[in-house]
Design a binder for these strands. Structure first.
Lengths: 223, 223
DNA sequence: GGGAAGTATCTTGCATGCAATTTCGTAATC
DNA sequence: GATTACGAAATTGCATGCAAGATACTTCCC
């Protein structure tokens, strides 16, 4: 459809980002400009510009004169990213408590109720999709596009590491209960509680990930 | 010194950013690629790449096929930026209360004490420099480079609009008092109070700006 | 005189080519 | 046998050229 309104550079950036996020391009892979240009049927110029763009989001690492590689994320950096993500999500929830319109609040409630059914049916797939939507509502609800963008970008950056998020048994019901706490605080206009509830929620997600990713490694102290 | 270790693109990005921040390039100015290339004595290629980089920070606006302009910031966008900045600063303060090392805490106290003298001498210039330093301590003190980067970038982006920050009479002493509240909360390890105090502090800065920038325009409700 | 259509100029998007730096492989020395 | 030095291949950084789209201007029509 709208495939010729955006420039080749933008299309490339999107495709490469997708390849990284869905795992086709593994961390550490060298991103040779000639290779990418050949693979996507363009010249090196748009490839270079796309790589610069991706570098600013942190998805890839650009070393001057030494080429680009898909960002290798150490578990320490990952923890840093999760903490930052959590703080931003909590901030969005905080602002949502202060700024959401009645319509937005009603939508939030409706989505939450719908997600209860998915938990009852144990429909992990539907719940995962609805979960993304749920969080997105707070980005928009903050009524602050700058913050919403930052948070969405970070979420995208962490997407490769959250595949198995709802695998752990009982995680669905727990997640839904936490969502309930966040939602009630936001609907009540209680900024501090909304912040705390969301922070608690995403911290647990982080812990769940760490248990899956490195079950035997010694737990570092959170910063 | 280190002028040939970084690439032309990076140097260009820095110089153009400086020109925007110090006001040499006013908002709305068209950034013609040929013109910039000629002015800085390079070809268009590094100019293009520098522009892309600046676009991601928000300093300039890049419209596909229509060129780049120095970002025009409406007062509404400015308020959004200030709110986001405030939330991020508050978050850094929150994390600082939890994570600062004893050495960092001591440095914070020392700087605060030194700033008291500047207030007494009414040395606006020195205070402004120390103020930047003061805030930077919290970025580092969060022990979260991702968050610190985001906050520093936003601060840089807002730099053009904070020139007259300490002009208003009595602002120096007030600022110092607020710094004191933030510092005490951080030193006490009280995350919630640190967050609240910093938010209060930067909100007042925002208000001061708005009074200077648009004294007669009707006040919008903060989001 | 005002507006619209067509044309010319300008600007960006992309391709290609060259030079400099890095990296890899080979060989020589310790 | 390991390490270092040298050289070749490869890769990035940058310059230039061309084509498509956008802007500005002229001209024509109402």
């Amino acid at each position: 459809m709208a495939d010729e309104r955006q420039t080749r550079t933008e299309k490339l950036a999107g495709e490469i980002a997708d390849a990284i996020i869905d795992g086709s391009l593994e961390p550490g892979t060298r991103l040779d400009e000639h290779m990418l240009a050949a693979r996507y049927g363009t010249s090196r110029t748009p490839v270079r510009e796309a790589l610069r763009k991706l570098a600013t989001t942190g998805l890839i690492e650009l070393r001057p004169r030494r080429g680009a590689i898909v960002a290798e994320v150490t578990s320490q950096q990952l923890e840093t990213l999760f903490v930052a993500m959590g703080e931003l999500e909590a901030t969005c929830a905080r602002l949502s408590a202060l700024s959401m319109t009645p319509i937005e609040r009603r939508r939030l409630g409706a989505l939450y109720d719908g997600m209860a059914d998915m938990v009852a049916r144990d429909d992990v797939e539907a719940y995962a999709a609805a979960n993304t939507h749920f969080h997105t509502l707070f980005y928009a609800g903050s009524h602050n596009p700058v913050l919403a963008d930052m948070t969405a970008t970070l979420r995208r950056r962490l997407a490769p590491f959250r595949h198995a998020q709802f695998r752990a048994p009982g995680r669905l019901a727990l997640s839904h209960a936490e969502h309930g706490a966040v939602m009630r605080a936001v609907l009540a206009g209680d900024a501090a509680s909304a912040h705390a509830a969301m922070l608690h929620h995403v911290s647990l997600v982080e812990d769940a990930f760490e248990q899956l990713a490195a079950p035997s490694s010694p737990r570092r102290r959170a910063n």
